[in-house]
């Protein structure tokens, strides 16, 4: 890809991601930034957590992305009686062959939608989260690799709802990004009401890319150039969270790495070969909010906290 002489006049997302973004925008109305963030997250090789009230389009977004990227898709509806084996799979005894055969669970898919992850018990949650971290599943003493690429999109209701087990910080940290969809704006809502069931329309989407191409794209993104001033900026931001009394604790080194890879993916979706501070600021709320707790309420950091953080750090 040739770098154009003017950054502001870039052609936009490289083929075929312009189409992917466009198609997804037809299904999830009025949420271009969120779609772009979700796509950046997957392109950066991270897992995505979508948090919002029921009925905001969380599942539809996951469906849409799976279809557009042509990923083998499986959905796990988390409930309070879900067991780890329900996710990873079980061995059953085959009488005719007189041996055990492993029946892979729904986690053996390229894109796993873990719906309402905070309804399951911590034990079950951690079975999934371990799979996310390791890229493999150990069941009945045997380790089995998960398919490549492997993405988890988890959705959860706001944790203060009844009958939920909030994810602990250590597990939240395994999600590269956490986004909220929020209510659609007036025009989007009207269009939604007029056009009908978006989930069905998502089923009708055709894939724009083959899953085999994804690893190459991810590698290209990981190699995207981040100059010293940009690294300085990320370091300054991370450092600021560690000294800001508004937060209970600062961002971890892993969070710093996450910020850089997310910024790279965002820059790539813009068609740029260099990462600029705008990319960092764009992904910072999604990458940092679920990793920070405010000192005042103990809850997750709000948009205003991140805004204040950005305003407290000069761009080098």
């Amino acid at each position: 890809m040739m770098l154009k002489s003017k950054i502001s006049a870039l052609p936009g997302p490289p083929q075929p991601f312009d189409k992917i973004l466009n198609d997804a925008g037809q299904i999830i109305l009025g949420k271009h930034t969120e779609i772009r963030l979700a796509l950046s997250c997957l392109l950066a090789g991270g897992h995505l957590l979508i948090e919002d009230l029921p009925g905001m389009g969380k599942t539809t977004l996951a469906h849409t992305l799976a279809r557009l990227l042509g990923l083998q898709f499986s959905r796990i509806q988390f409930t309070s009686d879900l067991l780890p084996a329900d996710i990873t799979g079980v061995s059953i005894f085959e009488r005719d062959k007189s041996e055990f055969r492993f029946l892979p669970g729904p986690v053996f898919a390229q894109l796993v939608l873990a719906d309402e992850i905070n309804r399951a018990t911590p034990k079950t949650q951690s079975a999934l989260l371990e799979a996310m971290e390791e890229g493999q599943v150990t069941a009945e003493g045997q380790t089995r690799p998960l398919p490549r690429p492997f993405f988890v999109i988890a959705t959860q209701n706001p944790t203060h709802q009844i009958g939920t087990f909030p994810l602990p910080e250590s597990q939240l940290d395994r999600f590269l990004m956490r986004i909220e969809l929020g209510y659609p704006d007036r025009s989007a809502e009207r269009e939604l009401l007029a056009t009908g069931n978006q989930r069905n329309r998502a089923e009708a989407l055709v894939s724009r890319i083959s899953p085999a191409e994804l690893p190459a794209i991810q590698q290209a993104i990981a190699k995207l150039h981040a100059a010293a001033p940009l690294i300085d900026y990320i370091q300054a931001l991370v450092d600021a969270t560690r000294h800001d009394p508004a937060f209970q604790h600062g961002l971890s080194p892993r969070a710093g790495l996450a910020l850089l890879s997310a910024a790279r993916a965002w820059a790539w979706l813009d068609g740029r070969e260099i990462v600029i501070p705008d990319d960092v600021q764009a992904v910072l709320p999604a990458v940092a909010r679920h990793r920070l707790r405010t000192a005042q309420t103990g809850g997750q950091a709000q948009m205003e906290d991140i805004g204040r953080l950005i305003r407290s750090v000069a761009i080098p």
Binding site: L3, S5, K6, I7, H225, A227, P229, L230, I274
Partner: peptide, 16 residues
Amino acid sequence: FQNVVDAYLRVRYDDA
């Protein structure tokens, strides 16, 4: 000014 910004970003954020 957009031209200035483009030129600046290209030399500042590209070590090459």
